[in-house]
């Protein structure tokens, strides 16, 4: 794991890590020392070093969520030094590097905090509330049959770009974690925008926003107060324009849909 930069001096750090056995147990912050951390390591590699130390000592390793470690999958979810995904802007935890810290630093590491994201163990949280919101309407109806020709449905470039920007949401939940209200509106709005903007999304357009917002409320997320903490911490830069679009979609769906329930 040694880096290529010969000038990169190894660091010694103090970690304050949230430890919790399971969903129902009480958790607490536990302090650990890690030594000889290369500045070129990623944050998760640094935690791997901690876990190797813990295993050698016969302690339980720290549970944390991760998968691709390339900033694509949205699995990693650490609240580092009071910020979702740590101090660097536009970055997932796995793409945060230890060169952003200095020798002797104390780093506090906590799980996402929201009632809708219960802690499974240590730093790992259950984000299945997001899955249930998607199940409520984050899909399109697909016509079966032959493969359609490319560019059969004309979509203006600027609309395609907006939909694509919304579609870059990796569902990591940093928006919820950063929001003072634990609101999921940036996530939900991105998922609504990416479909509402495109012709394929028109069939379920009204029911989609009605059902997804209802599910979001049911999961116990807070309501947006337009502070913008979510967009500021979003690793892929989802914009607040999406929340405005969701509000428009919601108001017009409620006013015009056939749904009386």
């Amino acid at each position: 794991m040694a880096g290529n930069n010969p000038n990169a001096k190894p660091m010694n750090l103090t970690l304050k890590v949230w430890r919790q056995r399971n969903r129902n147990s009480e958790g607490k912050i536990v302090e650990y020392q890690v030594k000889d951390i290369s500045p070129e390591m990623s944050f998760l590699e640094m935690l791997d070093v901690l876990n190797e130390d813990l295993l050698l000592k016969g302690d339980e390793p720290v549970a944390f969520d991760h998968d691709c470690r390339e900033g694509i999958c949205g699995s990693c979810d650490l609240f580092i030094n009071g910020r979702a995904h740590g101090p660097e802007k536009g970055t997932t935890t796995c793409q945060l590097h230890m060169r952003k810290f200095s020798d002797g630093d104390t780093i506090t590491i906590e799980p996402w905090r929201a009632n809708a994201f219960p802690v499974n163990r240590d730093l790992s949280v259950d984000r299945s509330a997001f899955d249930r919101i998607i199940q409520a309407g984050g899909y399109i109806s697909v016509n079966t049959g032959g493969v359609p020709d490319g560019n059969e449905i004309p979509i203006p470039k600027n609309i395609a770009d907006k939909a694509f920007e919304a579609a870059t949401c990796i569902s990591c939940g940093a928006c919820v974690a950063a929001c003072k209200n634990a609101s999921a509106m940036l996530f939900v709005s991105a998922k609504i925008s990416q479909l509402a903007l495109l012709p394929q999304g028109q069939v379920e357009r009204k029911t989609r926003v009605e059902n997804m917002v209802a599910q979001m409320d049911k999961e116990g997320f807070g309501a947006c107060t337009n502070i913008g903490q979510c967009a500021a911490e979003c690793p892929v830069g989802i914009s607040l324009e999406n929340i405005a679009l969701m509000n428009r979609e919601f108001i017009s769906a409620k006013a015009t849909s056939d749904n009386l329930a």
Binding site: F79, N115, N181, A182, G220, G222, T225
Partner: peptide, 19 residues
């Protein structure tokens, strides 16, 4: 409702850095 949405808060939270 918003206050109730996060019953367990953060030990270290630095919202002044983002808003």
């Amino acid at each position: 409702r918003n206050r109730a949405a996060r019953k367990v808060g953060y030990v270290d939270s630095r919202p002044s850095e983002n808003s």
